[in-house]
Design a protein around this nucleic acid. Structure first.
Lengths: 344, 344
DNA sequence: CTGAAAGCGCTTACAG
DNA sequence: CTGAAAGCGCTTACAG
């Protein structure tokens, strides 16, 4: 465990010169640099991170906060965030908020603020005003994915428009009996994402002059299994069954497709299904969807944050509201088509 | 950003007493403790982590290294590891090795060894001798999930036995034409997990005196999509089609089931399918599987590591080989059944 | 271009 | 039980 002293001694220079040579941020003679580099290599020197942090106040570490890590959206975004950060020499400390309010508080105060991270990325987590004020006081910039945060940077898709677009795709095919499987989980309380997607659906239906029956408006927990159950009920109803389903996520779309098939209904001949996400298995299912390119979204958020961190004038505007709308696109596969003649 | 000095001043004691009172590890008079706690609360004092680390050499941070984070096995294990660690007051720094050999080296030296972590958990990553020696020199214990590591602690299922058990389940139902979809990805080069599962399959077939045709031994990339393609080829073969498929993972099992259905084959009447994992969607698919309880496995590994770290005599045996075999169980659902009469 | 030295904010033997 | 002080291992103004 060679320290900077050892390197200095071996190279025949002071520790100051070692530090300068190795960081590359200051002027050092070529000769000194070479001696230092050789000595460092020979000793297998690796700078102590805590000493660096204590001396500079910088961590080169980003905290990432999310409500789940074992769900597709979150793990996909995390993968991209991590790759981007490591590329730029940053570490990533993961905080999973599955533990409820108490744990959340602990994370925001004890952990995040223990001066361990330089900045924070939240996924589908809405920091409240107090949390934001704390972060601001500590000069930690934050960027939110999955919804806008008053007073902070964010990157997110337009959920309302996505819901509307998905619905309009079905309407344009000639469907009039369109149902919506919305989401209803913890995540949602943070940003009302589910509500917004449904609002988009309702707006599209309304603008087309179509009715929306009560039993076309159902909810599930964003899982395939949850959606399977509600879809089966809905599709089995002899009087009210829809000819198309807009599911708030692809996983719920999978569940709806499986429910249809288990009832002997053909997709898309008897029932059309559209989701949101472009999940890894969506192609296999042939699911038409709104592609939100989650990995690119995560990478972009990480990049944004890094560029914010490297702004030397950052102190004056650590957290300012700046909302980037992430573009999505309609990806048509084989789960949607014109309704069968006579259906209705 | 109140420091320990501020607290000391407000409480009217020395910084040494503040440190003792707050850590709770040393004797402090009740009166002093109260004054300190109040002062700390009033100032919103949070100890600097880097100063703590620099002074003590401890990080309270665990590095977790894995080849993917956006695949089910890894994200599920990660979820459990993170929850367990945070419960015990540890942070988790994530290292995703998707970047190839160069990045791997960087992670093991630059990052892990930068004295940022107290210990390491690897998932389906086999540290080589040099990496292990480095870690050992730095007194960082390591625990591997997903395969045994010579000279280190590990926790993993018995892949050979799992492959055999899955196959025997099919044989016990009367199948004689059993195929295996094995895996072949980066992960595998680390531990030959796929080979071991296949060996178990081959052993079961051999012991039952059954032949294993060449086109029953196929490979895919552990994804549903990859397995779909190979399963479709196999099932469509008029002369060689099997009556049962053992897939090395549930996701590949899903792909096989979908391929069968798309060919008009019924599961399990025409074709039985068994996987390994008990993936979140396995119940929905009705897939019979070998449940390896990934989340519990991750939590157990984290717990083991924490107990290793809290052993005061640790220095003498930082990394010793200690292999824990993680138990698995056969979980029978509706994708496996006796072969149809006349099939063959 | 380089070095001596202060300082980052804690912990912990040591002495009392 | 408590405090003064050294020490953890870096970085960086300051002076030369």
């Amino acid at each position: 465990m060679a320290g900077i002293e050892d390197v200095a001694r071996l190279a025949g220079v002071s520790t100051a010169t070692v530090s300068r040579a190795l960081s590359g941020k200051d002027v050092v003679s070529e000769k000194a640099r070479q001696k230092v580099e050789e000595a460092a290599r020979e000793l297998g020197y690796i700078a102590s991170h805590s000493a660096y942090t204590l001396a500079t106040g910088r961590n080169r570490n980003i905290g990432v906060v999310m409500p789940y890590v074992d769900r597709w959206f979150f793990s996909s975004a995390l993968e991209a965030i991590e790759s981007t950060l490591i590329e730029h020499g940053y570490d990533l400390t993961l905080y999973n908020m599955s533990g409820g309010a108490e744990q959340r508080k602990k994370i925001f105060t004890d952990f995040l603020l223990r001066k361990r991270v330089d900045a924070v990325i939240t996924l589908a987590v809405h920091p409240d005003e107090e949390e934001l004020a704390q972060l601001d006081k500590m000069k930690k910039p934050i960027i939110a994915i999955g919804g806008q945060v008053h007073g902070a940077r964010s990157l997110s898709m337009n959920d309302h428009d996505a819901g509307k677009l998905a619905t309009e795709h079905l309407l344009s095919l000639g469907h009039t009996r369109v149902a919506n499987i919305s989401g209803a989980v913890k995540t949602d309380r943070e940003f009302n994402q589910a509500d917004k997607r449904r609002e988009g659906y309702l707006e599209a239906m309304h603008e087309a002059g179509l009715e929306t029956r009560k039993n076309w408006l159902v909810e599930a927990d964003y899982t395939a299994q949850g959606a399977y159950k509600v879809a089966k009920q809905m599709l089995g109803d002899p009087k009210n069954s829809p000819t198309a389903i807009f599911a708030n996520s692809d996983e719920m779309g999978f569940g709806a497709m499986m429910a249809a098939k288990d009832l002997g209904l053909r997709v898309p001949e008897d029932i059309s299904v559209i989701g949101i996400d472009n999940h890894d298995m969506a192609e296999l299912f042939g699911l038409t969807t709104i592609d939100q390119n989650v990995r690119a979204q995560g990478a972009e958020a990480a990049r944004l944050l890094i560029s914010v961190l490297s702004d030397p004038t950052l102190d004056s505007h650590v957290n300012v509201e700046e909302d980037v709308e992430w573009p999505v696109s309609l990806l048509i596969r084989s789960s949607t088509a014109r309704p069968a003649v006579g259906a209705r």
